[in-house]
Amino acid sequence: MSAPTYVDVMVDQLLLACGLVVGPLFTVAYLTEGATRAYYRPRRHPISCLAIGDRGWTQTANFFVAGLLSLAFAVGLWRAGPSHWGALLVGVWAIGMLSGGIFPTDPVSGFPPGTPDRLEHSTRQGVLHSLFSMVAFVALTAACFVFAWSGARGWAIYSVASGVLFAATMALATAAFAQKERLVDVGGLIQRVSVTIAWTWLAVLAVHTLRA
């Protein structure tokens, strides 16, 4: 096998760098939009609800950008990373992000105003949104465990802990959006914690792979 060329190395680094920038970009975009959207309560409402309404195109674009950057990162992991299975799982996460832009959610927790609190899958696109989201969450959790085997003990512990915490907080957020009484008013906050855990782990994975 021939040694990688300078161009190959640069391409790998650019693809892996996508894993560093995607989380901050996605986060800044939804925080800005959530802070300026009328009647939207970030502590209560899910991020996906920002894709509903006349200004929904901003969050739709956010999903697409995040999905494409995550997909590029998955390609970089496939080319240079320690696990093809892990790269595929990150690719599934990327497809979930893209699907969030293609299939908007149905109203959740009373947003937009005048809609029911409980999520009612009244549209096909809402059903597909929930389905692809669940697959993406499971894939990213699995990726945390798969990549845990690709480094030293500290990295393994961090990856496993990230997978457990991501799955647990996402389960709590799902219960909140299903109107669990003690959680419903903080469902959006819990989801943001969960998504932050995911993006942070992906960024650290990018650094871990770049160093390797």
Rank of each mutant, 00 (worst) to 15 (best):
G126I: 11
G126S: 13
V127A: 08
V127M: 04
H129C: 13
F132Y: 15
F132C: 12
S133V: 05
L140C: 03
A143E: 01
C144T: 00
C144F: 00
V146N: 04
V146A: 06
V146F: 12
F147H: 01
A148D: 05
S150H: 07
S150P: 05
G154S: 10
G154H: 13
A156L: 08
A156V: 08
Y158S: 07
V160Q: 04
A161W: 04
A161D: 08
S162H: 02
S162F: 01
V164Y: 10
L165C: 07
A167P: 03
T169G: 08
T169S: 09
T169W: 04
A171C: 13
L172H: 04
L172M: 11
A173V: 06
T174I: 13
A175K: 08
F177N: 10
A178L: 10
Q179A: 10
K180A: 14
E181H: 12
R182M: 10
V184F: 12
V184E: 09
D185A: 14
D185E: 15
V186W: 12
G187P: 05
G188D: 00
L189V: 09
I190G: 11
Q191D: 09
Q191W: 06
Q191G: 06
S194R: 01
S194W: 01
V195N: 03
V195K: 00
T196S: 08
I197Q: 03
W199C: 07
T200N: 01
W201N: 02
L202G: 04
A203W: 06
V204N: 05
V204L: 14
